[in-house]
Amino acid sequence: MSGMTDGRQQATDFLAVVLENVELRQQLAEVQDQCIELAVDAGGLHAEIQSLRAQLLDAERACNRWRSLAEQRLAG
């Protein structure tokens, strides 16, 4: 009888390991999906930052032109 009990215990332990493996694989798949979503979001944010930097540069140039024009009018 002990041999059957040992066999059942081994089968139970094996099944527990298999189930844990399945759960861990599911968690890994979910985390991988989240990583992909984060990478896509990061790419979008990077593009937006680049656009905002370009807009800021344009605004700074316009401000400098206006400042220069105002200084010229005040000077002369």
Rank of each mutant, 00 (worst) to 15 (best):
49 I>E: 09
38 L>M: 10
36 I>W: 00
48 E>Q: 14
75 A>P: 00
37 E>V: 01
29 A>R: 07
28 L>E: 04
45 L>G: 00
30 E>V: 04
65 R>P: 01
67 R>T: 09
13 D>K: 05
73 R>I: 10
39 A>E: 11
15 L>M: 13
37 E>K: 05
43 G>C: 01
66 W>Q: 14
31 V>D: 03
9 Q>L: 13
30 E>A: 05
12 T>E: 07
52 L>I: 08
57 L>I: 09
73 R>E: 13
48 E>T: 10
4 M>S: 14
61 R>W: 06
20 E>M: 09
59 A>W: 02
39 A>C: 06
30 E>Q: 08
61 R>D: 13
24 L>R: 12
37 E>W: 02
23 E>Q: 07
17 V>P: 01
60 E>G: 05
8 R>V: 12
42 A>R: 15
64 N>F: 11
76 G>W: 06
46 H>Q: 14
66 W>G: 00
56 L>P: 00
27 Q>R: 06
26 Q>D: 08
41 D>S: 08
36 I>D: 04
43 G>E: 03
62 A>D: 10
19 L>P: 01
70 A>P: 01
12 T>D: 05
27 Q>D: 04
28 L>N: 03
18 V>A: 09
46 H>Y: 11
64 N>Y: 10
24 L>Q: 12
23 E>K: 07
62 A>Q: 13
55 Q>S: 13
73 R>H: 11
64 N>G: 07
57 L>F: 11
56 L>D: 10
22 V>P: 02
12 T>A: 06
46 H>P: 01
39 A>Y: 04
33 D>I: 01
6 D>L: 06
26 Q>P: 03
38 L>W: 05
24 L>T: 10
4 M>K: 11
23 E>P: 01
45 L>W: 09
53 R>P: 02
26 Q>N: 09
47 A>D: 14
66 W>L: 13
40 V>R: 00
29 A>G: 03
42 A>L: 14
50 Q>F: 07
36 I>L: 03
51 S>D: 14
12 T>N: 06
76 G>N: 13
18 V>T: 10
74 L>N: 05
11 A>H: 02
25 R>V: 08
64 N>L: 15
42 A>P: 00
54 A>I: 10
9 Q>A: 12
14 F>T: 07
33 D>W: 00
53 R>N: 15
48 E>S: 10
60 E>S: 11
57 L>E: 15
69 L>H: 12
20 E>V: 08
56 L>W: 05
75 A>Q: 14
74 L>T: 04
9 Q>S: 10
59 A>Q: 08
41 D>R: 07
50 Q>E: 15
43 G>R: 02
72 Q>F: 07
68 S>D: 15
27 Q>P: 01
19 L>Q: 15
75 A>D: 14
67 R>G: 04
14 F>L: 07
36 I>F: 04
36 I>E: 03
46 H>F: 11
48 E>H: 06
44 G>E: 13
8 R>Q: 15
50 Q>T: 12
60 E>W: 02
37 E>I: 00
10 Q>L: 06
41 D>H: 04
